[in-house]
């Protein structure tokens, strides 16, 4: 892909949590790129480090976690003359520099629209807050801009909703308010952490359509985190599959769905129920056997080998596979592929 469209390069990102029980490598060498105006889907089971990766980019990793290694190169558009490249991982998490980017240029939408909004502040107060913080406008203008944003995300009666509290809105409406808040400063990257997981399917479809439409209108990139491959198929151009804090496979969405190489990706795909697929006569929907390993006692070698259907003794349980490019733009962390020798 064209390098001038690079927005964020995540390189060997390591975010560890230092707990009393030991150290958890929540993100352990993740590497991927996000391009302007495109959607990167990030998939994986619960606990694979998707959300921590997102929070690392935002620099809001909760304590006792912190970034211990790697780079997050943000290609920031400077007015008119080219771009400046900023390593977000090296900035102070509470510093002025990252705070001027956070919420303005890189914004985030969270999983639980109910609890992600303050119960005691109006929707308008919370949206206008971001605008006031980053845009240097008057309170009156901020309110008008907030109403405009609510209108843009398809909120019915925006000039009334702005003075309502989150508990007065339905789940879908709350998520629309969250999206309005995130997009109010026209960010170049929207990080969406399972924004539709807490919603019913009908509402989910509406929110996904809305995000697609807003992406077309505003041209921002989206980093879409989900465990739902169906949503990935609908939303993403590129896909990153994560397992135990590592990227195990990445490719464009068609390759991931039709030509997956990593056994974990294939297993994820097989565990999606398909319309028209016959499940009778003793055939059951495939699930990935075993559990996500104990984060304090990671398996040696490939972290997926205890659950892998095709693991080779003496290889997979001894040596950790490197990330290798099997075809342009398609990279896999596995020994299986014949081309790798």
């Amino acid at each position: 892909m064209d390098d001038s469209n690079l927005l964020v390069e995540v390189k060997d990102l390591e975010t560890y949590f230092y707990l009393d029980e030991g150290m958890v490598r929540a993100v352990d060498g993740a590497q991927f790129d996000i391009y302007r105006g495109k959607t990167l889907g990030v998939v994986g089971e619960s606990g694979c480090g998707k959300s921590v990766t997102a929070r690392s980019i935002m620099r809001i990793v909760p304590k006792p976690g912190r970034i211990v290694g790697g780079q997050i190169l943000y290609h920031r558009a400077s007015n008119g003359h080219g771009e400046e490249v900023l390593d977000l991982a090296s900035l102070a998490a509470q510093g002025d520099r990252i705070r001027s980017i956070r919420g303005a240029e890189i914004a985030m939408v969270f999983q639980e629209p109910m609890t992600s909004l303050s119960p005691v502040h109006t929707i308008g107060n919370q949206i206008a807050e971001v605008i006031l913080l980053h845009q240097g406008v008057s309170k009156k203008e901020a309110r008008e801009l907030s109403i405009e944003m609510l209108d843009l995300v398809g909120m019915p009666l925006p000039s009334r909703t702005i003075d309502q509290y989150s508990h007065e809105l339905s789940g879908g409406m709350r998520q629309r308010a969250m999206i309005a808040m995130a997009l109010s400063c026209r960010p170049s990257l929207l990080v969406a952490d399972e924004p539709t997981t807490a919603l019913d399917v009908t509402t989910e479809a509406q929110i996904l359509t809305l995000m697609r439409r807003l992406q077309d209108e505003m041209g921002m990139a989206i980093m879409y985190i989900t465990h739902n491959l169906g949503v990935i198929a609908q939303m993403a151009e590129d896909v990153v599959v994560m397992y135990m804090g590592e990227v195990v496979e990445q490719a464009d969405v068609d390759t991931i769905f039709h030509d997956p190489v990593h056994p974990y990706t294939s297993a994820l795909l097989q565990s999606i129920p398909r319309l028209g697929q016959k499940l009778g006569e003793g055939r059951r929907l495939a699930s990935i056997r075993g559990m996500v390993p104990d984060p304090y006692a990671l398996p040696k070698g490939c972290k997926f080998h205890p659950r892998c259907g095709a693991f080779k003794a003496g290889l997979c349980d001894q040596i950790e596979p490197e990330m290798l490019e099997v075809s342009p733009g398609h990279r896999v962390r596995c020994f299986l592929d014949a081309k790798l020798g």
Binding site: I101, M108, F110, T115, S116, P119, Q126, L133
Partner: peptide
Amino acid sequence: PYVETARAKG
């Protein structure tokens, strides 16, 4: 989570 939302605003 609303605290994290506020943090994410900058």
